[in-house]
Amino acid sequence: MERHLNYPISDRGIVSVMVQSRENNKISYKAADLSDTLVKIRDLHFSRGSRKIFDGLSMDIPRQGVTAIMGPSGTGKTTLLKLIGGQLTPDEGSIEVDGLDVHQLSTKKLFELRQRMGMLFQSGALLTDLSVFENVAYPLREHTRLNEALIRHLVLLKLNAVGLRGAADMMPSELSGGMSRRVALARAIALDPMMIMYDEPFTGQDPISKGVLVSLISELNNALNVCSIVVSHDVPDTLSISDYVHFISAGKVVESGSPEALTSSNVEWTHQFIHGDADGPVPFHYPADPIMDDLYQRGK
């Protein structure tokens, strides 16, 4: 069954119906068109204090399909998303989103651009003093002048898409980790963005909620026909839903390609990361003097 429903992506406000039959478990992908670039990162340098996080990073992210950015913890994957969203400013280099240089924009233009971006934070980042319903309604109330009835419809549809319509009246503190991520996802798609960024969506989830999130990401991507950027270090789940993968390490892209190509890659680093080997290009030992020297010195 063809699940790719190409609804018009509106600027805002038009209901994009994503209610699809859930009994159809087999998801058939339509090959995404990867030639059209939405995010263009060129020669990116960024450092925190004296620690260099990005050292000449360049990558393209296509307008459609799920692009995964993977790498070990501490490589600045979250930082990269914040740079794309314009929350951080790079030391050098440029990031273009939909033809606009994010860091050259005025605050007003940047905010306009952000309305077309959705971001799912690792913690969900729900506003704790608002109910689930109000959280999803928040961007709509802030950026549109829709009447209350229409907002209610939109919010319930978005919540239904993530399967949490029944939790509309709950407070964020009553939700489990997986549920609050799904609510945050409903909020991220409230304004029908052109891209959704997922920051470590699978971390700390039990297998069931992880499975839910995995299928949600790919379903939403197909239904909304948007650009999804998934930042993760969870290899099997991420590879199973992505159309294109960038591996980053030490501030640079190590290897890029389709999941199939990367799984059989000859690059040592990629091999170690995908298979989770304890030792390899990323050594088991943190750089240190030879152990005998250290022990000998201590004894002195």
Binding site: Q87, E112, R114, Q115, L126, P139, A184, R187
Partner: peptide, 16 residues
């Protein structure tokens, strides 16, 4: 709110 990324989240929703 800062520690739980609510402030960042607002910024990303284009809310100051």
């Amino acid at each position: 709110m800062k520690a739980t990324e609510q402030l960042s989240g607002m910024e990303m929703m284009a809310v100051n």
